[in-house]
Design a protein around this nucleic acid. Sequence first.
DNA 1: GCATGTGAATAGGTTCACAGCC
DNA 2: GGCTGTGAACCTATTCACATGC
Lengths: 180, 180
Amino acid sequence: MSEELAARGQTTAAQVRKDLSHFGSFGKRGLGYRVRELRASLQRIIGVDRPWRVALVGAGRIGLALFEYPAFRARGYECVAIVDSDPEKIGTVWGNLTIRGPEEFETIVASLDVELIILAVPGPAAQELAARAVDAGVKGILNFAPIRLNVPPRVPVEDVNLIMELEALSFAITQAQRDA
Amino acid sequence: MSEELAARGQTTAAQVRKDLSHFGSFGKRGLGYRVRELRASLQRIIGVDRPWRVALVGAGRIGLALFEYPAFRARGYECVAIVDSDPEKIGTVWGNLTIRGPEEFETIVASLDVELIILAVPGPAAQELAARAVDAGVKGILNFAPIRLNVPPRVPVEDVNLIMELEALSFAITQAQRDA
DNA sequence: GCATGTGAATAGGTTCACAGCC
DNA sequence: GGCTGTGAACCTATTCACATGC
């Protein structure tokens, strides 16, 4: 039931029903939802009913942590290439992949059908690599660089900015202390 | 001017002015804002005009990546302790810190005045550690575990869920392809 | 009878546009 | 003259409440 889904999702039953109604009608009145079917429908809507080919750009510590994060593959995000500009790292093998140099980037994206990149490089390099990725056909970017990437609007970008997350905590705590 | 701030923040001039008006009046009509002063005011409002003491809970790859991320310290978030439950890791030294076992957690939080924790442990362990952190006096949690932490409402939690970020990209791309 | 799906009502947030002040 | 700060208008999102259909 929407009530149970809401409890799990930290929201309200009405919200669940209204959100679902944007995409269709998935339940049965008087009964609720059949979970397997609903899940399958949502997976299709979100687009995670098929694997996605991902390239990791930046083989630093964040890149490594992400590369070894098993949940990615488990959820259908398959890392098919790693690129880094550090000559020390190029040629190194991680798992079943060899780290490539940035000059091969376009070739890799095209030949391996890379759809998404995880951009985990220092700020200054990020914009150029993002632009090259988009030109090479990448369709979306998960960006860890603390800059606002300038890419065409058709290419979605999700920013992960850990400093801002911590600052959100600092703000919430500071506010609460002031109110008290 | 609000116009310039908006351009940098990917928003509109009216939005910038309205947002600032929530906290006070910071500009001069006809002139715009004095950047140094505005920045100082905002830092005070957000609560980042002083350092914050942070403990890292979970010394896996994500923990390591975060620990070595220099921007944290640069922005005033100082890691004062590391906790992990792996006996192999306890006693290991990272930088100037020795990794401690979870049984010392409460002592550490109290004696070192830990205000925030970065929770980078596997899902199952996260809830218990979060609860213990809160009981020990932690005021906010940056949560990397893919679960919804159950903590009192006075303790803000920021979730970082990379799978959901990737899924947001998959959804945006899938939607765009459907519309086309 | 019971829970969905959905119009209507409400709340919240963004944009407009201009009075007020430098 | 020029830009802020802010009510008013607008738009979007959430909540309510009930008709609908199993």
